[in-house]
Every structure is written in structure tokens, then in C-alpha cells.
Design a protein around this nucleic acid. Structure first.
Length: 474
RNA sequence: GGCGACAUAGCCAAGUGGUAAGGCAGAGGCCUGCAAAGCCUUUAUUCCCCGGUUCAAAUCCGGGUGUCGCCUCCA
């Protein structure tokens, strides 16, 4: 395998992998487009959340200080429409789904961003941004609406690889008669009567979609930052428009690296709200361990599509189970380990796995390959565990690395144990001891009964040469 | 119509010039009272097709076929 000793990332802007060098030494500023909160998130929404959380974790693993901003679009046509249907307040509706978003994201072990800005709390920043664009002659007002003049921004199309002429040629855009040019897009929308709105120099209204990300990323990260992420469907027009807005004012590249994840598909077709083929994350989490879902999402490179169905989740579940078994093997081994020369074997295997993992992640966050390194480590752990003598330091070292690397991909191995957990631990030791006595007496009927009944309760017993292990069936 | 991506074993999936990772499923063996877990062996002479470049191509170039995406809200 190619050695990748430094992080390289694929930049949509240049359509190539580039060496990652942050603008400020040791610091990374990143902005990721978050959801429009008018519903529970679906699996397709979960992918960028998990992917960029993993990017962030890896950057931190490398020692960077990361500032991570993810917005919520809580002012939007879809929210307003849904609130009207439900006869509720748009902002209250959006707030509810923001709460629900966090419940889902927490389950997936997604770390909170440093800032989660909302449109509704940045209206002033947005208005000021629009004002400046008008002052610079990049935008114009017509009857309470404000539009951005696309042709006033020479680089328009540089991210999505289209020319202004291409866009016109393919125009499926319904031309708004009031716009000076069909390509122009709204920065500020005039409110209809009684609709959610704020006062502005152009009358009552609300922000267009794209302006929020320019205004909020500028506020928290400046007009020039390191990474901007999101789904591929945001490349055009959303990110293209963000660039036009921000760079019209700042005249510096808005973000150095533009990262975009591929889609989740169902029967090879994009999972999307408009196609109606989406699966809510919480419905999936009702059937599968959240860590399995996360593992599934990371088992393919982030830029490739992933086809979703239950069977594939089950495959991910078995794979993760394999890693968990190896980890349990380490914990179990540590209980009886002493000191042994043979530890060198495991130490070498651990070091190797860590290097493979880092090299994989350095190559544009190749989590699929990084996970392969974890499987290799799992096999080495399992093999080592069958040795007659085990070295405590080697096991502890492997455990630490295993936990750290799983932590980079955001999968928790260590089980949090509360008071009940300790009682459970004690109970299981007791039951296993009783069963062990039965087995010594060749009373296999009793031994099997205990094992079968426990299995019905969701507890799996495994008789290994070193003793009996137990785990809760996930 | 314009722009772009992808096509690797039964399934999933890495690999962008040096002779096909890994996982799941399957087969055989070891271990075990049995089971589970685990370990070992095994499963693509070949990477959609046809040309070309090269000592060397899954990897680069040209053409073709197929699938998908963006161009409209979308992660």
C-alpha cells in the first residue's frame, strides 16, 4: 500500500487530492451545513453528520485544535408550510426538531459542534451582510426582495464546474420576472401577510437560504477558513452561492478545502425526501444498535454512494460484533495476565495496526481501509489470546490503541457501568460459577438449561479454554 | 440538452502504473461435553466491453455499454 505520511484530502474545488495544510498552524476551522429542521432526520441526513464528526475526530487525533460549526436552518419555506399545516409556530416547530436532532445525533455518538448557530438568531448579521452586498453593487432590491447578481461575480461556477452559459442553456429554472437575470438568487424574501418575518431596510421579510451560511460562517470562523463540508447535493447551487456571497465581500477564498459526501441510496436511487424513499434514523435505531449504524456509514469511503437495506446493516452488525469480541478478549485476558516475553508479538501487531489505520485515514479519510486495519488487529488479538501466558502490558497497550482508534471513528467499546452494572456483573459471576460446578459434575442438562435460559434473556455464554465469558446480545 | 461520478468474487468493499486488502456468506480442518466465539486453509490467473500507450495497466488515453447524480427543495 502507498505510504501516506501526511493527511491529504479531496477538494471539490480543485477536483483533486491535496495535502492538508490549515491556514493557521495547528488549528482547523470547519463549517458543516446542518439540517433544515422541519422533520426528524433520515439516514441520508445522518451520513454527513457522522462523516464530518469523524473528520473532526481524526483531525483532533492528529493534534489539531478544531473549531467546528454546524448550523441549523430554522427559517425556511418548508418549516413555514409545515407549521401552517399543523397550526403551530414555525420557530417552535423548528426548535422541537432541533431537540429531536440532538437526540438522534447523540445516539450516533456525534460530538456537539462548538457552535450550532440558528438562522433565527442571526437575522441582524444576515441583514448587514445583504446591506454590504448591495453597497458593493453585487445585489439589488426590487419591491422588498433582494437578489444577488450572479454575473457580478466572475468566479461563479468554480466549485460546481459549470459556466454561467451552461446554466442558462440547461435552464429548468422558472424565471422570476422581477429578477434582472434568471441566474440571480434571493438573498432576502419579502414576507406575505402574517408570515414569519423580521423588519429590514427592505421591509418585512426573511433571509434566502444561502445567505445564512455566509453570514454565520463569517461570524464564527471569519471570511476565510479551512474546511467547508456537506452533502454532494449542496455543491450546486448552495455552496456555489455561498462562495459568491462571501467572496464578493471578503475577496479571499471562503474555504480552503471543500469536502462533500456521497449519498445514501435505496435500490441504487438517492434517498431523498422528494422521492419519498427515505428511512427515518429513529426508525432504524429502533431495530439496530446506533453503533452498528455508525459503523455501517463508515464502512464505505465517504465520497462513494452507499446502498441501504436491512441486510447490509446486519452485515455491519456482524462485523462490529467481531471487533467487540476481540475487545472483550482483551478485557478478559487482562484479568489473568501477568508478565511474559511473548508480549512483543502483540505489541508489534498493535503498532502495525495503528500505522495502517493512520495511513488509511491520511488518504482522504479512508475509513473503509482504516476499519480493515482494525480487523487485522482483532485477528492478532484473538490469536495472541490463545497463548498459555499473557503479558499484561501488551494487552493493556493493545486495549488503549484499540479504544483510541475506535474512538476516532466514534465507536464506543468501553461499556459504561453504573451501580446496576456492578450488580449484574456479580450476578453473572455467580451464575457462571454455579454452572461451572454443574459442568464439572458432568451435569450438562443443568449447564445447558442455564445457558439456554440466559440466551432467551439476551445473555450469551461462551465457554473458552480460559473460562466462561458472557455478553449481552445486541 | 449541459456537466459529473461510478462499474473489482455469491454479496459488501479497498486498491489510480509493478503483478488483486478487509468484512459477510460458503466449504474443509482445529479447539469444545455440546454450542458459541476463535484460529488455520480455501473461494477473482483477474478487475463492464473493445482498442491504444508502456518492459509492466484494475489503475493512464480513446471509443462503447450500463448505472447513478447535479442542473429545482434536498445531506
Amino acid at each position: 500500500m502507498k505510504r501516506v505520511s501526511e493527511l491529504h484530502v479531496y477538494n471539490t474545488l480543485t477536483k483533486s487530492k491535496e495535502k492538508f495544510e490549515p491556514l493557521r498552524e495547528g488549528q482547523v476551522r470547519m463549517y458543516v451545513c446542518g439540517p433544515t429542521t422541519y422533520n426528524y432526520i433520515h439516514l441520508g441526513n445522518a451520513r454527513p453528520i457522522v462523516v464530518f464528526d469523524t473528520v473532526r475526530r481524526y483531525l483532533q487525533y492528529l493534534g489539531y485544535q478544531v473549531t467546528y460549526v454546524q448550523n441549523f436552518t430554522d427559517v425556511d419555506d418548508k418549516i413555514i408550510n409545515k407549521a401552517q399545516e399543523e397550526k403551530s409556530e414555525p420557530l417552535a416547530l423548528a426548535a422541537k426538531y432541533i431537540d429531536e436532532y440532538f437526540k438522534d445525533a447523540d445516539k450516533l455518538n456525534v460530538k456537539r459542534a462548538d457552535v450550532h448557530p440558528k438562522v433565527s438568531e442571526h437575522i441582524n448579521e444576515i441583514i448587514n451582510f445583504v446591506k454590504k452586498l448591495i453597497e458593493k453593487g453585487k445585489a439589488y432590491e426590487i419591491d422588498g426582495d433582494v437578489y444577488f447578481s450572479v454575473r457580478k461575480f466572475d468566479d461563479y461556477g468554480k466549485l460546481s464546474g459549470r459556466s454561467v452559459d451552461d446554466l442558462l442553456a440547461g435552464a429548468r429554472i422558472e424565471v422570476d420576472a422581477r429578477k434582472k437575470d434568471p441566474l440571480d438568487f434571493a438573498l432576502w424574501k419579502k414576507a406575505k401577510d402574517g408570515e414569519l418575518s423580521w423588519s429590514s431596510p427592505w421591509g418585512q421579510g426573511r433571509p434566502g437560504w444561502h445567505i445564512e451560511c455566509s453570514a454565520m460562517s463569517c461570524k464564527y470562523l471569519g471570511d476565510e477558513f479551512d474546511i467547508h463540508g456537506g452533502g454532494s447535493d449542496l455543491i450546486f447551487p448552495h455552496h456555489e452561492n455561498e462562495i459568491a456571497q462571501t467572496e464578493s465581500l471578503g475577496e479571499k477564498p471562503m474555504a480552503k478545502y471543500w469536502l462533500h459526501n456521497g449519498f445514501i441510496t435505496v435500490n441504487q436511487e438517492k434517498m431523498s425526501k422528494s422521492l419519498g424513499n427515505f428511512f427515518l434514523l429513529r426508525d432504524i435505531l429502533a431495530k439496530f444498535d446506533p453503533m452498528v449504524v455508525r459503523f455501517f456509514l463508515l464502512s464505505t469511503h465517504y465520497r462513494s454512494p452507499i446502498d441501504f437495506d436491512d441486510e447490509r446493516l446486519q452485515v455491519a452488525q456482524r462485523g462490529l460484533e467481531r471487533l467487540r469480541n476481540a475487545y472483550a478478549q482483551l478485557e478478559y485476558g487482562l484479568k489473568n495476565a501477568g508478565s511474559s516475553e511473548n508480549g512483543a508479538k502483540l505489541i508489534a501487531a498493535t503498532k502495525n495496526a495503528q500505522e495502517q489505520f493512520v495511513q488509511a485515514m491520511n488518504d482522504d479519510f479512508n475509513t473503509a481501509l482504516a476499519i480493515a486495519a482494525l480487523f487485522d488487529l482483532a485477528r492478532d488479538i484473538n490469536t495472541y489470546s490463545s497463548e498459555k501466558e499473557l503479558d499484561k502490558d501488551a494487552l493493556a497497550g493493545a486495549k488503549k490503541v484499540f479504544e483510541d482508534l475506535m474512538g476516532v471513528i466514534g465507536i464506543n467499546l468501553a461499556v459504561e457501568q453504573g451501580e446496576k452494572g456492578q450488580i449484574l456483573e456479580g450476578l453473572m459471576e455467580l451464575i457462571i460459577e454455579i454452572r461451572q460446578t454443574a459442568r464439572k459434575n458432568k451435569d450438562f442438562t443443568t449447564a445447558d438449561l442455564i445457558r439456554d435460559k440466559l440466551k432467551e434473556l439476551g445473555v450469551i455464554l461462551e465457554d473458552a479454554p480460559q473460562g466462561t465469558k458472557w455478553k449481552i446480545n445486541s
